[in-house]
């Protein structure tokens, strides 16, 4: 089984190891026909309708605006329904530096997202702290606070790279299973258990 995307050659996904390991896991566990086709339907819906949360802290956010503009037009993929309320969004594009003061806020936003929820760490700052590695107030990568699905390097990443990242997220969603198995929810719960935040209800 290959996780394909419309009008994208499979070779364009240069680094497929991660997704392929997921596919392998999916096939090993197996599923009956009914559940399998339900999974397919659900994943089709989920992977084709990824609504971002309007969230930007710095430069990357402006590139995200450009991504919505006429030249790159993320509306083609159906991602343009940016919701301002985290309850209605599907993923956070952590676009920009996250600092100590912002960290609990980001975590709270993540907790407010409704399941299924995804995170893209967008830009060097969100991935690892980037050029502010030596700062006293910058969180060295958002994966210290919330589980990240896709890492997107660049400072800031070009809009094309953002499209690629969201497409990778879409592919990841395509190999999900509603019950058990390749369920990212378990990994997520494990992460949250290891990174507790007081005062925020999980």
């Amino acid at each position: 089984m290959e996780v394909t995307t419309k009008s994208m050659p499979y070779e364009a996904w240069k680094d497929n190891e991660y997704i392929e390991s997921l596919v392998k896991e999916l096939q090993e566990n197996g599923a009956n026909v009914v559940v399998g086709s339900f999974d397919k339907l659900i994943n089709w819906g989920r992977s084709n309708s990824i609504w971002p949360l309007t969230f930007a802290t710095s430069c990357c956010g402006i590139e995200f605006v450009s991504l919505g503009a006429a030249r790159y037009d993320m509306a083609r993929f159906g991602w343009e329904v940016a919701r301002s309320s985290p309850r209605q969004a599907d993923f956070i594009m952590v676009a920009g530096t996250i600092v100590h003061r912002m960290a609990p806020v980001l975590r709270r936003l993540y907790d407010q997202l409704a399941e299924p929820k995804y995170v893209i760490a967008c830009g060097a700052c969100a991935v690892s702290g980037g050029p502010f590695k030596k700062s006293y107030h910058v969180v060295m990568g958002v994966d210290k606070i919330i589980p990240v699905d896709v890492y997107l390097p660049g400072c800031p990443p070009r809009p094309e790279a953002m499209i690629y990242a969201i497409m990778q997220l879409s592919r990841k969603i395509k190999v999900e299973k509603f019950f058990g198995g390749v369920n990212r929810q378990e990994k997520q719960e494990e992460f949250l258990k290891n990174h507790p935040i007081e005062g925020v209800e999980d």
């Binding site: 430069c59 600092v99 050029p131 502010f132 700062s135 006293y136």
Partner: peptide, 27 residues
């Protein structure tokens, strides 16, 4: 909420190195 401490980081960098932070203030 996005205070990154650029002024402090700059104190430990050489002059050419401090330049690139200017891109990231008002981008």
């Amino acid at each position: 909420y996005i205070h990154r401490g650029i002024e402090k980081i700059c104190e430990n960098l050489t002059y050419p190195q401090t330049l690139h932070f200017m891109d990231r203030l008002d981008y």
